[in-house]
Write a protein that binds this DNA or RNA. Sequence first.
DNA 1: TTGTACGCGTTATCAG
DNA 2: CTGATAACGCGTACAA
Lengths: 340, 340
Amino acid sequence: MENRKITIDDVATALNVSKTTVSRAISGKGRVGAETKARILEYISEHNYVPNAIAKGLAQQRTYNIGITVPDDFALMDLPFFQKCLMGVCDSASAADYDVLVSMTGTDNIEQLERLIYNRKVDGIVLTRTFTKDLPAELLLEKKVPFVAIGSSRQPGIIQIDNDHEKACFDLTTRLITQGIKRFALLCDNPAYMVTKSRMQGFTSAMEEAKLPEDYGLIFDNCNEDSVDYIVDRTLKTDVECILCMDDSICVKVLDKLKRNNLEVPDDIKVASFYNSSVLERNIPSITSLSFDAKELGKTAANTLLKMISGENVPERTLLGYEVMMRESTRTILGKDVRR
Amino acid sequence: MENRKITIDDVATALNVSKTTVSRAISGKGRVGAETKARILEYISEHNYVPNAIAKGLAQQRTYNIGITVPDDFALMDLPFFQKCLMGVCDSASAADYDVLVSMTGTDNIEQLERLIYNRKVDGIVLTRTFTKDLPAELLLEKKVPFVAIGSSRQPGIIQIDNDHEKACFDLTTRLITQGIKRFALLCDNPAYMVTKSRMQGFTSAMEEAKLPEDYGLIFDNCNEDSVDYIVDRTLKTDVECILCMDDSICVKVLDKLKRNNLEVPDDIKVASFYNSSVLERNIPSITSLSFDAKELGKTAANTLLKMISGENVPERTLLGYEVMMRESTRTILGKDVRR
DNA sequence: TTGTACGCGTTATCAG
DNA sequence: CTGATAACGCGTACAA
């Protein structure tokens, strides 16, 4: 099993042809006699020769690697999202004989990413999130490294793959309104993420389209784990019928708080989330939410990036679908809550 | 900013020295005149020259990459563990100017791993888990690729990094016994994982050392999400005081089931887990469990691997610490439950 | 259709 | 202490 050492040269001399011919037989570029080609391919699989990716890379100025950034902090609830992205990226990459290299990157920590670029370890990058002040994207633009971003960005020239959060939130809100719910409170999270704005936009559009008064849609900016309790208390002093959470971690906190206040969901108040997670599914009652396929996001991102790398044109923005999951937490009882 | 193209040759000609000298100045290998060296280093940082890692790799038969395997399935509860491992590995790797390449690998799906090896994309591998029938490990042993495994293995010659699960489970069990609890049920999970055996061993050792009758420690093999309900029901027909879960996902199911049966934890029955997770911490009541530092595991694994790659000797087995987290779910009330 | 010769950017060898 | 020169393994004009 001395397959560790066999090179293209070995194959060539063994078959009395030149390296060139072997190279061509493998890559399919340039014409090779059918019979010669068959002989070469047979020998190759017989002696399981595998081209040295490093040398190949040196010669073509390519690495056959793509990089993916993952958060360097513990936003625990979000982790399944990135894991699934990663899985999608890996799937697409390995299908194209590419490998995936990870880079832990934060809002302001882009050291690992820089190393990746400076050392030319990758042919392109998938950014798994976008920021309003997007250091990673700026770096990649400046260095002219091909990349795609999962998420949305205002900045022109950035190839984006995203779910249609705005439309999704619009849909979910509209369906709740159709059920008869009129008064909402929307608990937003970190405005540093672009997605926060899209979600808000979808919500307000739905409210406008339904011609509901503006003060029927209370919006609380910049909620975090500490402020949720206070915000829920404020909410409960109003006529709010349904609390919309932008984020799982917020939603979990809200549910905790409601339980502590002895409020029943959905009888006393309804709750929905603009993002899905296994935690919420397991909850009793199950929580109405949006469902996105993170793995598909990763796959699409990687495929798009690979196209860019091979010089193809790609659309600047690709929006993927979603599902509205109506569940118990927003169930309205006929004749009691339904108002039309 | 034309740093994209500058090579060692450019530096050499610009300074009227040879490539060799420049190379030596950077690597520190071989003697270079102090003044020459200073001049070179200055020029380099001035024009921010970065050596081409690919070329370097070709010349030294090295990639400056390490691979890490992560599960290709959605064992959701466990994901934070792998994420943290990954973070640890990345930390250590980038500190050593190495990058990390991920490979989605399952019990019987080692395609991606094989590609990594055949294409010589990495200098070594970190396996984030071990199996009783360990295909990845076998492959790596056969191909003589340096690797370390996070977890434990019976197979000789495998460098292992693990928490001391056996001792940890022994400790936790002993502390519960000390509290006065005598009758346990241990719900085990997939016996394909080595760690299952270590945990069982720790438990039974503690029971023996406390000289408790063998039938005070009921052991249920191979629990899964579907069988938990049935097993808990069986358990409840006995005098069991405390249910020990090997796994978070099992523990979550157990808690669900107990709640449905209107049993209060810890008053009616006590529950503890042999593994920690944020889910269990958030639970009301909080769950007694063991705490392991997965990131530290990753760091240690990567550091060990890097040593192996550079030819140093490393211990075959490294055991990391743990913490026993006594929480509400096993609280005993003085004068009622305490029997000594 | 096939082969020759050179380049890719470094490190390693062996002289000087 | 320093410098040519040969690997490293593969792709590719250019030539035959």
